[in-house]
């Protein structure tokens, strides 16, 4: 492995994504605006039924949720980042194809996995505003008070979640490139993940069969890790049960994404086409 080439590729892709992202002001504007109504929607669907205090009491009594707004805000942040990966990294190879640049990209000696990982990292950077912005707004509007016992645990939970989300993006990217309908696939994956990963409610509230589905989703573990450390005074030790499966799924998705991508490229070389489904 040529580490210099890997680094240059990684840097090149990130800078390219950043330039493309800021080249249209509307896309920057949309990125800033889009998450805010979603956050409000998640919160107000509860407040339409009862006051925040009453909702908080019920959630705490039934599911041990210490902060009603905190639960929703952290779930929403992870979901927003997941969406960013789905549309940013997941659809990245497909976008290269539609833009007519995939051949130019594949004609270089650059490592395809490095390109995808850098694309994932860029997507997270573009969505980084959401972590800061949404949390600040939630503090101002909804009065969320963080309950942090271990800042190290928060940082590890955040980084682990981000890496897991990049793995999700890489996996989707290698899969989406097989179809002409990547946009529709990405859309179809938004609502089920939002539902099953417990973005706006505890996973324990789901029927048992859906809870099984929830626990094969890295998004679920990412949300749980952040909820635990940011609003429930979780520590590194209490995180082990959440982070271990998160790391396992991250590794599986990266390996699977790498394997699928290699197969897809080999098939395209044989058939002269990437489309399969």
């Amino acid at each position: 492995m040529n580490l210099e080439l890997e680094w240059l590729t990684f840097k090149g892709v990130i800078l390219r994504h950043f330039k493309e992202f800021v080249s249209y002001r509307t896309s920057v504007f949309a990125t800033i605006i889009w998450p805010l109504p979603l956050l409000a929607l998640n919160v107000y669907q509860y407040l339409g039924l009862a006051s925040g205090q009453q909702v908080g009491q019920v959630l705490n009594a039934k599911y041990g949720i210490a902060s009603f707004s905190g639960m929703i805000i952290l779930g929403t942040i992870v979901y927003l980042l997941y969406n960013r990966m789905l549309w940013g990294t997941g659809a990245s190879l497909q976008e290269e194809r539609f833009n007519g640049t995939i051949e130019s990209l594949f004609l270089t000696p650059a490592n395809r996995m490095t390109v995808l990982l850098a694309s994932g990292f860029s997507s997270l950077l573009e969505g980084a505003w959401w972590i800061v912005g949404v949390f600040l707004l939630s503090w101002v509007i909804f009065g969320v008070q963080p309950a942090i016992a271990d800042w190290g645990a928060v940082i590890i939970a955040l980084i682990s979640t981000m890496i897991a989300l990049i793995a999700v993006g890489v996996f989707f990217a290698s899969f989406f490139v097989l179809t002409r309908a990547a946009d529709q696939l990405a859309t179809s994956l938004q609502a089920p993940i939002r539902y099953a990963s417990g973005v706006a409610f505890p996973v324990a509230a789901l029927p048992a069969v859906f809870q099984l589905f929830a626990y094969i989703l890295p998004v679920t573990y990412g949300i749980n890790a952040l909820r635990s450390t940011v609003v429930q005074e979780g520590t590194l030790i209490s995180l082990v049960g959440t982070l271990a499966p998160l790391y396992i799924f991250t590794a599986i998705l990266i390996v699977a994404g790498h394997f699928i991508l290699k197969r897809v490229e080999a098939q395209a070389k044989r058939n002269g086409s990437l489309y399969k489904i």
Partner: peptide
């Protein structure tokens, strides 16, 4: 890449070629 300048396109591909 249409949203990059000519110079940025060249620098991007230069990096991909190491």
């Amino acid at each position: 890449y249409w949203r990059l300048t000519g110079r940025e396109n060249l620098l991007f591909f230069a990096r991909l070629y190491g």
